[in-house]
Each structure stands twice: as structure tokens, then as C-alpha cells.
Computed example of a mutant assay.
Amino acid sequence: MRRPSGSAALALVGAGTPLRVEPMLFDAMLEGWRCQHMARRLSPSMIRSRERVVRRFGDYCET
């Protein structure tokens, strides 16, 4: 079965199981989000600033 580009299953495949999946899943979600922004040809500085906002919100929510 072929998975679509940016699928979380592609990003989370690994040899071991992490103790806490949530941080890895959050990072994988942001990586896919970053790829979508790059596909829309947004500037790297805009992508970084938006990612910082999302990460700060994640920290606030204790993700």
C-alpha cells in the first residue's frame, strides 16, 4: 500500500517505540505542516515565525 506524501505513518516509522509518543507526533505534525507551507511557496522566515507561534502554543498547552 502506497502512503501519501507527508503521512504521519511515514514520519513515525522506526526501530523502537518511544516512551512518550505525543512529542514525536507533535513534531511530525509540524513537519507535515511545514511541507505544506513550502509547497505554497511561503517564505522560510514566515514559516519559521508561524512554527514558533504553534510551538509556543503547544508549550502553553503542555504538549
Results as ranks from 00 to 15, higher is better:
C61V: 05
W33N: 10
R2I: 01
C35P: 03
L12I: 02
R50M: 03
M38I: 11
R40L: 08
M24F: 06
R56V: 03
Y60A: 15
M46S: 08
D59M: 07
R2E: 13
H37F: 03
C61R: 04
G58R: 02
E62H: 13
S43G: 07
L42I: 05
S43F: 03
A28G: 06
P18Y: 07
R34E: 14
R55Q: 15
M24V: 01
M1H: 11
A28N: 07
V13N: 15
R52T: 03
V13Y: 12
E51P: 00
S43P: 12
A39W: 01
V53P: 00
G14V: 00
M24R: 05
P18M: 02
L12H: 11
F26A: 15
D27G: 07
A15D: 15
E62R: 11
R56W: 08
G16I: 04
V13H: 09
S49C: 07
M38H: 08
A28C: 02
A8Q: 04
A9I: 02
R20W: 03
A15P: 01
Q36K: 01
C61M: 13
A15C: 10
D27A: 14
A8K: 06
M1N: 15
M38C: 12
V13L: 13
R52G: 12
R20A: 15
F26I: 03
R55F: 15
H37D: 12
M46H: 13
S5V: 08
I47P: 03
A11F: 04
M38S: 13
R52W: 07
Y60E: 11
S49K: 09
D27K: 01
F26H: 06
F57G: 11
D59I: 01
R41K: 12
F26K: 02
P44C: 06
R34G: 11
V53W: 06
T63M: 11
I47N: 05
D59C: 05
E31I: 08
C35K: 02
M38F: 14
S49H: 13
P18W: 10
V53L: 09
P44Y: 02
L25D: 10
V21D: 11
A9Y: 10
Q36C: 09
A28P: 00
T63D: 14
L19W: 00
G16V: 05
L42K: 05
R20L: 07
H37E: 12
P4G: 15
M38P: 00
D27W: 01
E22G: 09
T63Y: 11
H37P: 02
P4S: 15
R2M: 08
V21F: 14
R20H: 13
R56L: 09
C61S: 10
R52E: 01
M1V: 14
D59T: 03
F26E: 04
M46I: 04
L10S: 15
P18V: 00
P23T: 11
R56Y: 14
V53E: 09
P44W: 00
R48E: 15
G32D: 14
Y60D: 03
E51Q: 13
V21A: 12
V21M: 07
R48M: 04
F26D: 12
G32T: 12
Y60P: 09
R3W: 05
P23M: 09
V21L: 12
E51V: 01
G16H: 07
V53I: 12
V53G: 09
V53H: 02
L42W: 13
R40E: 13
M29N: 11
M29Q: 10
W33D: 07
S43K: 00
F57R: 12
V21H: 09
G14H: 04
R52F: 11
G32P: 00
